[in-house]
């Protein structure tokens, strides 16, 4: 697990955020090819995105989102220099937060 990569750009009053998270996103349906044992589910369940401490978007996910998830969204507002904060929580109790400035 590493940092969340975030790129946020404001243009004509709309901020576009693109982010890349690092996560295995195991559905729990796959089996280990060698042992045949099921691989336990391990995926991000929730992602919250904040702009200046205000939640602008919450994503609820299943294991059906691809490994190392990509997420992009847009919101009205945001100036260059404003802080964007993205936090994910997974089904095993882990979480991670990344921040970036709007450019």
């Amino acid at each position: 697990m590493s940092d969340i990569k975030i790129r946020a750009k404001s243009s004509n009053g709309v901020t576009t955020v693109k982010s890349l998270m690092s996560h295995v996103m195991e559905t729990g349906l796959r089996k280990d090819k060698e042992t045949g044992e099921p691989i336990p589910a391990h995926f991000i369940q929730e992602v919250t995105a904040k702009w200046k401490d205000q939640v602008v978007m919450t994503a609820l996910w299943s294991g059906g989102v691809s490994k190392n998830p990509y997420l992009s969204f847009k919101f009205n507002g945001g100036e260059p220099g404003d802080a964007i904060e993205i936090t994910w929580f997974d089904n095993q109790g882990n979480s991670e937060t990344g921040t970036a400035e709007i450019s």
């Binding site: 994503a59 691809s66 847009k74």
Partner: peptide, 25 residues
């Protein structure tokens, strides 16, 4: 076609633009 079809649900805020982009299985 997935065994559990719901992949993701995005909750918008007042300032949200109805736009999301991601990658799914």
């Amino acid at each position: 076609g997935n065994s559990t079809p719901l992949i993701a649900s995005f909750e918008m805020s007042e300032s949200s633009v109805p736009f999301v982009s991601t990658r799914i299985k």
